[in-house]
């Protein structure tokens, strides 16, 4: 696998979507991350250490030691430079580095003079933030120092993965209903545009009755796998009922979402399933674009009505809400 494939340094929308999928921004402090920065501070003997996350226009700290966790403008962040690369960023003397000489953390009473940051790289290749140490004196960082910080940054990411696992359906890997509803609520509270697709596996009860529940479970896993292969970065897939799934498509119009829904329908029915003795399955889908000012409940209800219409009028089809 090439680095070009694994690391997506130029895909800012995908990077932000990856960050949001962790659902960690603006959450309360947590002991696991606090423990990591405390260890890092102690091991490197520095005054400050932090886990930072780089949002669209700000840096937000999940954990910090030596200072209160805070946020600052993205342009003022050292870690913003770290996430642009694959390797740790080392600043041995901020006063000699034109990128940081006028930085407010250098010129203010914080008096930062040295920095070492390792990117927090997600398993799908996005740098969503950094684990960093900051010092008030110039300092030369060795290759061994960098290796230690990189390995700590991997521990931070695996801790974040565990945190995220709590929000995933164990059978299919889709978001849990609760997490999916949180994503919808975020969109609604930010008054962002987008579309919702609700879909249901046709004749699922009959699949379970005929082939058994293990085969039914395999069908659900396969459906989610095929959905995941079709969606854009930034889209979300959630399991919102037994055999019912939902997709959230930020910024997609009703027509774009309907095209996507049709692609999903074809993808699901394209290949026969071994678990069903090589029979194909079909899905029915309802699509609704969010209206201005519409609540999540009302939006979901319109998508559900469109799905009901798709089922009622023959299944294996897409219906767009009025």
């Amino acid at each position: 696998m090439s680095d070009t494939f694994r690391f997506k340094l130029d895909d800012e929308p995908g990077r932000l979507a990856a960050l949001r999928r962790y659902g960690i921004l603006d959450t309360d402090p947590e002991k696991d991350f606090d423990d990591i920065v405390a260890l890092v501070k102690s091991i490197f003997s520095v005054p400050y250490a932090a886990v930072t996350l780089i949002d669209a226009d700000r840096q937000w700290m999940k954990a910090a030691v030596g200072m209160a966790p805070m946020e600052c403008a993205r342009d003022d962040s050292f870690c913003m430079h770290t996430i642009r690369g694959l390797e740790p960023l080392s600043v041995e003397s901020a006063l000699d580095d034109p990128r940081f000489i006028d930085n407010p953390f250098v010129t203010s009473a914080t008096h930062i003079r040295s920095y070492l940051g390792a990117p927090l790289t997600t398993p799908d290749g996005y740098n969503i933030g950094a684990l960093c140490i900051l010092g008030t004196e110039p300092r030369v960082f060795t290759e061994a120092d960098k290796a230690v910080l990189v390995n700590f940054s991997k521990v931070v990411v695996s801790q974040m993965e565990l945190r995220q696992a709590a929000t995933r359906d164990a059978l299919t890997g889709a978001m849990t209903r609760r997490n999916f509803e949180d994503q919808m609520a975020d969109m609604v509270s930010g008054d962002r545009s987008g579309s919702l697709i609700l879909l249901d596996v046709d004749h699922f009860k009959s699949i379970n009755d005929t082939f058994g529940h293990p085969a039914g479970d395999e069908v659900l896993r396969e459906v989610v796998g095929r959905l995941m292969a079709c969606i854009r970065s930034g889209d979300c897939v959630g399991r919102v009922g037994g055999e019912e799934f939902a997709l959230l498509l930020p910024e997609a119009s009703a027509n774009k979402a309907t095209v996507m829904a049709e692609r999903l329908r074809r993808a699901v029915m394209q290949d026969p399933l071994a678990a069903l003795e090589n029979q194909r399955i079909t899905i029915s889908l309802g699509v609704a674009e969010r209206r201005d000012g519409e609540t999540a409940e009302a939006w979901l209800k319109r998508a559900d009505e469109a799905l009901y219409e798709a089922k009622r009028t023959g299944r294996n089809q897409v219906v767009q809400a009025a």
Binding site: I43, A144, E161, L162, A165
Partner: peptide, 28 residues
Amino acid sequence: LPNDLKAVFERHCDNLVKLARSLEAAGM
């Protein structure tokens, strides 16, 4: 453990072993 959690846990343990090796290499 469910398979998804087992995989995440195994990755974490692997990261801890690598961290221990790098700390030793750094003279801790």
